[in-house]
């Protein structure tokens, strides 16, 4: 049995062939989750329904983080959460943000800490940590978005609708807070 060449884990169910002048110039074996992720095949969920609902449910959210949310992989290197969990290795520097939620407990386990205290490249050492103030509400937003995404994928539309409302409230609060502090 062939193993998926993308995740190197699942058995492949789809063979993708490049045709060159009528003959096969290369082929790739993929499992269906990876094929979906790469946009080779359509997801199994009822297409029309989920597309409409996604449109409605995600509305404003999508503008902010659409790429990231549709593909749960790292935007820097395409590594997926599953690949990270399987190998324990990261694909690129941006993976640290992409997989932050899984990474922090891992770092805690390995180092009994998840906060750097050593030196950093000189000129930047004095700069204030930019994420600090925004971090608490940011985390809430990220969690809500993730739950909403899960609910939509799982076709639990009622739950999704209430999560959407919660997310909108949180986003307004966040925007209001920022405006207040900046003025």
């Amino acid at each position: 049995m062939q193993i998926c060449s993308s995740c190197q884990k699942n058995p492949s169910t789809i063979v993708l062939m490049d045709l060159d002048g009528g003959s096969v110039s290369s082929q790739q074996h993929l499992c269906s989750p990876c094929a979906e992720k790469l946009g080779v095949v359509q997801p199994k969920t009822p297409l029309k329904l989920s597309a409409d609902l996604l449109e409605d449910l995600l509305g404003s959210v999508q503008q902010k983080a659409s790429q990231k949310r549709r593909e749960p992989g790292c935007p820097g290197c395409g590594m997926t959460t599953q690949q990270f969990k399987n190998t324990g290795r990261l694909g690129c520097p941006r993976c640290y943000e992409s997989f932050r939620d899984d990474l922090v407990p891992l770092l805690q386990r390995v180092h009994e800490s998840s906060q750097h205290r050593g030196r950093l490249p000189g000129q930047l050492q004095a700069a204030p940590p930019p994420m600090l103030r925004a971090s608490a509400p940011m985390e809430e937003l990220v969690t809500l978005r993730k739950q909403l995404d899960d609910a939509v994928r799982g076709e639990r539309y009622e739950e999704a609708a209430s999560l959407r409302d919660a997310l909108r409230r949180a986003e307004q609060r966040d925007a209001g807070g920022d405006a207040g502090e900046n003025s």
């Binding site: 990261l90 520097p93 640290y96 390995v110 180092h111 998840s114 490249p121 940590p129």
Partner: peptide
Amino acid sequence: LMQRLPLAYSEEFGFLTSCPTNTGT
């Protein structure tokens, strides 16, 4: 090296490494 090359790091995790067992310093 820092002066010559754009090293990857973050305030939170320090120097970013391929394996998380080396992250930080």
